Simulated scan of single mutants.
Amino acid sequence: MTKIKNEQLILASASPRRKEMLSSSGIPFYIVIADIEEKPLENEGGHEYVKRNAREKALAVSEKTLSAEFILSADTIVVTHEDKILEKPQNKDHAKKMLEALSGSTHLVLSGYSLFQNKKEIVSRVIETLVTFRILSAREIDAYIKTGEPFDKAGSYGIQGRAMGFIEKIEGSYTNVMGLPLSQVLLDLKDFAGIETYTQIDD
């Protein structure tokens, strides 16, 4: 069992981007990484998959803790217009195939997140964002892969990194594409956990 520090919130994620976004909101939290197998079930759609992953991550961390802090977990995937789930690439060839599939088309980014306390689910949501890529040349794809950036990112790209120039249009939450629909998460933390950002605290 892990003894958690006296914080209000636990972030069940190893993602540096989620950590950075939550930190920027002025909310104190402590990280406990969830160790679960992330693999779609047979005939499982993207919405169901990310919501299940988020729930399982939160529950896994709940089982490792001794305290009653709120636990926030999240999972993000990319879904092509052909309804194919794209997670993190396994190797260079896998990353290349993903980027070729995204080139010149619109895809869906899905982030599921859950808020748990005392091993019980308080709220879970799936937020979606439409992202359109311009047509990418083979040279651009190869050069981007050589940077190493695609390998820890769903869909093989990071919207806040070197791939930002690939994006023609976004419909929906920008931070959702980074891995956490921050605006909606902050509303739920306030409404369901009484945890507020520094921007909401009176002078």
Rank of each mutant, 00 (worst) to 15 (best):
E69Q: 15
R52D: 06
L86Y: 08
E42H: 06
K51P: 05
E69G: 01
H94V: 10
E42C: 00
R55M: 14
L66D: 11
V61P: 03
V79W: 04
Y49N: 03
N43K: 14
I71V: 08
L66P: 00
I71H: 01
Y49G: 02
L86A: 00
N91E: 11
V79T: 03
K64F: 08
N43Q: 13
G46F: 04
K51A: 14
V78F: 08
H94Q: 06
E82C: 06
E44V: 07
K51S: 14
V50N: 01
L66W: 00
E42K: 11
L86W: 09
G45K: 01
V50Q: 03
S62E: 15
E87W: 04
L72H: 02
R52W: 09
I85C: 02
D75C: 02
Y49E: 08
F70G: 00
K92L: 07
I71T: 02
N53H: 02
S62H: 05
D93S: 13
L66I: 08
H94N: 14
S62G: 10
D75I: 07
S73K: 06
S73N: 09
K84E: 15
A58S: 04
Y49L: 13
K84L: 12
P89R: 00
N43R: 09
H94D: 15
L66K: 02
Y49W: 11
I77D: 01
R52F: 07
K57Q: 06
E69P: 06
L86T: 01
Y49V: 08
L72K: 01
L86M: 13
I85Y: 03
E69K: 03
T65Q: 05
D93T: 11
T80S: 06
D83V: 07
V50I: 13
S73L: 13
L72D: 01
E87D: 14
E56H: 05
I85K: 00
F70M: 01
E87K: 09
A68V: 07
V78Q: 02
S73Q: 11
L72C: 03
K84D: 10
D83C: 10
V61I: 06
E44D: 10
A58I: 10
K57P: 10
T76W: 15
P89M: 07
T65G: 01
A74S: 05
S62N: 14
K92C: 09
E82W: 05
R55T: 05
K57N: 05
H47K: 13
E87R: 05
S62K: 03
L72V: 05
E48T: 13
D83T: 12
L86F: 15
D83M: 12
E42D: 09
H94K: 03
L59I: 10
S73P: 13
R55K: 14
R52I: 07
H47I: 15
H94I: 12
E87M: 13
N43Y: 13
D75Y: 07
N53M: 15
G45V: 03
N53K: 08
D83I: 06
S67N: 07
H81W: 10
A68D: 15
I71R: 00
A74V: 09
E56V: 06
E63I: 09
V79G: 00
D93H: 12
L59A: 02
E63G: 02
D83P: 05
N43D: 14
S73H: 11
D93R: 09
